[in-house]
Amino acid sequence: MSERRRRMAAYAVVLRHEEILLTRYVGVDEKHWTMPGGGVEFGEHPHDTVVRELAEETGFEIAVEGLLGVDSIVWTTPEGRPLHTVRLYYAARIVGGELRHEVGGSSDLAAWFPLAEVGRLDRSSTVESALRFHAERPASGHLAFDEPQERVILGA
């Protein structure tokens, strides 16, 4: 049986003038747009993670305005291992810094996209979840999905 692992990640939903801030993930054989944020380090609070990750990936300093919700997915890594990922989504606003791209990290670009154009991007399921959490603001912090959530890259 393959080793089963868990990962917790925290993401920021930053909107301005009908635009959303995204970062481009760069993997071994893939690139896609995703929400700015990333893995919670051992002993780190997810709130601190999202502030740290935003600064690393985009150059922006943020103020976290609230927890939008939490989703949970199980998927299979390229190496064939099952991975359970718990993702926390925070509403945030920019309070300082300037847009810049991450160097030497898991992303290579940061950019603002009009909300109307997001559906045409190659993007991770984190973007879909983030937009739904922002729009629906479920009191339970949980989104209902018609199908089980999997790690998928969505594109036009």
Rank of each mutant, 00 (worst) to 15 (best):
E57Q: 14
E18R: 12
G43S: 13
M8V: 14
V64T: 12
V26S: 13
E44I: 03
V50M: 04
H32R: 09
R7M: 14
V64R: 03
A63H: 10
E61N: 10
E41F: 10
G39R: 01
M8I: 12
A9W: 01
E53F: 04
A55W: 08
G39N: 04
E18D: 15
F60G: 06
A10I: 03
D48R: 10
A63Y: 04
V14S: 03
L68S: 09
E19K: 13
H17N: 15
V28L: 14
E44Y: 07
L21Y: 02
I20G: 01
M8N: 09
P46C: 08
W33H: 02
F60A: 02
R24A: 01
G66M: 07
L68Q: 03
A9H: 05
E65V: 08
M35L: 15
M8P: 02
K31T: 11
V14P: 01
G43K: 14
G69L: 01
T58Q: 06
R5W: 08
L67T: 11
V40D: 00
T34L: 11
T34S: 11
E18T: 05
E57D: 06
V51Y: 02
L21I: 04
V28P: 07
D48T: 09
Y25M: 07
V14H: 01
W33D: 02
L15F: 12
L15A: 10
L68H: 03
T49M: 06
G43W: 03
T58V: 09
E61C: 08
A10Y: 00
R6M: 12
T34A: 13
W33F: 06
V28F: 12
E53Q: 12
R16V: 13
P36W: 00
V13W: 00
V26A: 14
R16L: 09
R16A: 14
T49S: 07
V26W: 04
D29H: 10
R52E: 06
V40A: 01
H47C: 05
A63L: 09
E53S: 09
R6K: 13
E19G: 02
V14R: 02
P46G: 07
H17G: 13
V28G: 10
G27L: 12
V51K: 13
V28E: 15
H45P: 05
A55Q: 08
E30T: 10
L54F: 07
R16F: 08
A12F: 01
G66I: 11
F60K: 02
G69T: 11
M35G: 05
H32G: 04
A9Y: 05
L67Y: 05
R6C: 13
R7V: 15
G38K: 04
A9E: 14
G27Q: 11
G59C: 06
M35R: 06
E61H: 11
R6G: 11
L21W: 02
R6S: 15
L68I: 12
A55P: 00
V28N: 12
V26Y: 01
Y25N: 10
V51N: 03
